[in-house]
Every structure is written in structure tokens, then in C-alpha cells.
């Protein structure tokens, strides 16, 4: 049942519409994602999935237009700049900064928190151990395998202590066996950290594994879909 947005812990979207000119991609979307819950959006390419994520994290580019409010743990973040929203974003590509070592990539997410050097170092080492990649701190990200890069990318995202996570088809680049284990790794982390998560995907297997509700993008235009 819907809770009052002031007290709701998690990610809440209120009356979100997305349009290019006269053409609506999303109409009046209302949604609550609890902490540790994964909500899945499915739909064909061009259906506005990625644009929806861009709006939530504050990076929507024109000519797309959007309206509606985004709440995070009861706080209205609709007007905040990207770096102050603390919403983690993962893409299909790992997007590790190619000019930094693996350790530097991870430390990048910690530096804004004004930790001591020793603490940053300790957290980086701990994160690498959790990802099953001890002693990788000095490595060039380019020398890692696809699966290793993907795991570093997730750890980097989590080290910034995001209050919500947006996943834009993060598994579709990996081949099948790897995909399953990586998905388990990510979903376990999400439950552990209790982060509200939105996952955008093509793959019904992702949706089944998520254990959360699945929303079809096509239905967001005609019906007034609401989770309330």
C-alpha cells in the first residue's frame, strides 16, 4: 500500500511524464521502490527506458521533455544536480576510467566523502576482496576480463554509497554463464546494502531473477499504470 512520500524510505516517482514534442514515451508514472527492492522495466529499444533513468538521475538531455517529481527517502531531489543526488548508475559498458588504475577508479568514488587516505586505501582493498579481485589495485583496467571489469564497475558504484541504483541493461554484454553469476553478485549486493533499484532490460530472465515487480514500457503510455 502506498505510504506518504514524506515518510517513505526508498525511491518514489510521482506523476512522471516523458515526451519528445507531442509524442509521449511515459505518461503519469507513479511508482514506489522499497529499499532492497528491484523494479524491472521492460520494453523495446526506443521506448524511453534509458530516458526515464536519465530523468531520475538528473541527466535528461533536450529535445526530451519531462515533468514529475522524484523523491528519495522522502526528500524531493527533482531539482538537485547530478552529483548531489547520490544515485548510482550502471550501464552495459563498464565505463571504468581508462586513465586510472583499478584502485584509482575505486578511490574516485570515495574521494568526495573527505575520508582519510588510510581509510580510502582500506576501503578499496576491502571492495576488491569482496569482488574476488584481491591484489588488482595497481592493474590497468584495460587488462581485465569483461567479467572482472563489470565487477569493479559495480564496486565503484557502491563505494559512493548510492541511495538508489539505476541499472541500464548491465548484464546484456556478458555471455550467458557469466551473466548469471554476475547478476547474482549484483542482486546480492543490492539486498545487502538495501538500495532501492530500477533495472532496465530486454531479458525476461533478469526480470524473473529480480524477484520484484515488472513493468512493461508499452503500458506506460495508454494506461495510467500505478503501483498504488
Amino acid at each position: 500500500m502506498a505510504k506518504n512520500s514524506q515518510h517513505f524510505k526508498g525511491l518514489e516517482l510521482q506523476g512522471i511524464s516523458l515526451a519528445i514534442g507531442e509524442h509521449y514515451l511515459v505518461q503519469n508514472l507513479n511508482l514506489q521502490v522499497d529499499c532492497g527492492e528491484i523494479t524491472v522495466f521492460m520494453g523495446a529499444s526506443g521506448s524511453g527506458k534509458s530516458s526515464l533513468l536519465a530523468y531520475i538521475c538528473g541527466a535528461l538531455e533536450k529535445p526530451l521533455q519531462a515533468s514529475g517529481q522524484v523523491f528519495l527517502n522522502g526528500e524531493n531531489i527533482t531539482q538537485l544536480p547530478i552529483h548531489m543526488r547520490r544515485i548510482g548508475l550502471l550501464f552495459q559498458e563498464d565505463l571504468l576510467f581508462p586513465h586510472m588504475s583499478v584502485g584509482e577508479n575505486l578511490a574516485f568514488a570515495l574521494r568526495t566523502a573527505k575520508y582519510s587516505r588510510a581509510r580510502i586505501k582500506a576501503e578499496v582493498i576491502q571492495a576488491l576482496q569482496q569482488a574476488g579481485l584481491p591484489d588488482f589495485a595497481e592493474r590497468d583496467p584495460h587488462s581485465l576480463s569483461g567479467g572482472q571489469k563489470a565487477r569493479v564497475s559495480v564496486m565503484r558504484c557502491l563505494l559512493a554509497q548510492p541511495r538508489a541504483l539505476l541499472l541500464d541493461e548491465p548484464f546484456s554484454r556478458l555471455d550467458l554463464p557469466l551473466r548469471r553469476s554476475f547478476r547474482q553478485f549484483v542482486f546480492k549486493k543490492i539486498l545487502e546494502k538495501r538500495v532501492p533499484t530500477i533495472l532496465v532490460t530486454h531479458d525476461p530472465a533478469d526480470a524473473r531473477a529480480s524477484g520484484g515487480k515488472t513493468i512493461s514500457m508499452e503500458r506506460l503510455i495508454l494506461s495510467k499504470f500505478t503501483s498504488r
Binding site: 541527466a59 544536480p81 552529483h83 548531489m84 547520490r86 544515485i87 550501464f91 559498458e93 566523502a113 558504484c157
Partner: peptide
């Protein structure tokens, strides 16, 4: 998306 990723990691635009 590199710049976007940096920003979602809490880095403001100048630092990015």
C-alpha cells in the same frame, strides 16, 4: 557517459 558516471559517483562538474 564517462562524465555522467563520474557525476553519479558524487564528483561535481569542475572536478569531473
Amino acid at each position: 557517459r564517462y562524465q555522467l558516471t563520474a557525476q553519479t559517483l558524487g564528483s561535481n562538474r569542475n572536478r569531473t
